[in-house]
């Protein structure tokens, strides 16, 4: 048996069902399992678990499932070094979104990371504390900022509505996910010119931390082949 984790609800679930449908594959909800379990028609060796997107990323990271479908942003946040832990098998062509650095539009003197670096340093000198970046992408933010040479800042964890943090006064700038940028704009924020951290989409991913014997590998290969993925 292998386990495949797919989103339990929402756009991502519908789009994945449609994606499988194009290859003639359908998921079938298991009766009595309260909607948390399913099977794949024609693939009895696969146990399908319906989880939330972030749970799927965590399960891939921990080796608790063999395969999973979720956003690349969540996978990279859960597993900062993918090498040897999770293989991204296929970008699924939906769930597109960018993880970006956004600052208040009124900062007309700031349009690049180099500017933000100046602002962070000046802020630390002036206010004796670090400029706050609200985000739920702690790992992505840290490695991106480290690469850009920005160090005078602190991350404020955000559970939701990150884009409202600068207006609410709980952070000065944010790192968040955006599709069209309109929510950012509505909150008086702009994306830095070189502030795209990740162009994300839904990924079919394989956890290397899960047990993979020959039989399990064969089950996965048979399922993945019609989807255009060789493992």
């Amino acid at each position: 048996m292998i386990t495949l984790a797919v989103p339990s609800k929402g756009r991502l679930k519908e789009q994945f069902d449609a994606f499988l449908g194009k290859s003639g594959i359908a998921l079938k909800q298991t009766a009595g399992a309260r909607g948390y379990r399913a099977t794949v028609e024609g693939h009895p060796g696969i146990d399908v678990m319906l989880l939330s997107s972030s749970e799927i990323a965590a399960a891939l990271a921990g080796g608790d499932v063999h395969l999973g479908v979720t956003g690349e942003d969540l996978i990279r946040e859960a597993v900062p070094e993918l090498e040897g832990r999770v293989n991204l098998l296929k970008g699924l062509g939906f769930g597109f979104a960018d993880v970006v650095v956004a600052v208040p539009k009124s900062w007309i003197d700031v349009s690049t990371l180099a500017d933000l670096d100046d602002i962070c340093a000046a802020y630390a000198v002036r206010y004796k504390k670090r400029l706050r970046i609200a985000t739920k992408y702690k790992q992505l933010t840290r490695s991106f900022f480290a690469h850009a040479g920005i160090s005078d800042y602190r991350i404020v964890p955000s559970a939701g509505a990150t884009e409202g943090a600068p207006t609410a006064g709980t952070a000065e700038a944010i790192v968040d996910i955006t599709t069209t940028g309109s929510t950012l704009k509505a909150n008086g924020l702009k994306i830095l010119d070189d502030g795209v951290i990740l162009k994300s989409q839904a990924q079919l991913a394989m956890s290397l931390g899960a047990e993979w014997n020959d039989e399990q590998r064969a089950i996965a290969a048979a399922f993945l082949k019609p989807l255009g993925v060789e493992i």
Binding site: V103, P104, K105, S106, W107, I108, D109, D118, I119, A122, Y123, R126, Y127, L131, R132, P166, T167, G169, A171, E172, A173, N187, G188, L189
Partner: peptide, 26 residues
């Protein structure tokens, strides 16, 4: 001119900085 440019952004938050800081840097 700089202050007018800031005003163009309407009610965007200042994000913990002051107008003077922004004007000064520019």
């Amino acid at each position: 001119v700089i202050e007018a440019l800031i005003d163009q952004e309407g009610d965007a938050p200042l994000g913990g900085r002051t107008r003077e800081e922004i004007v000064e840097r520019l």
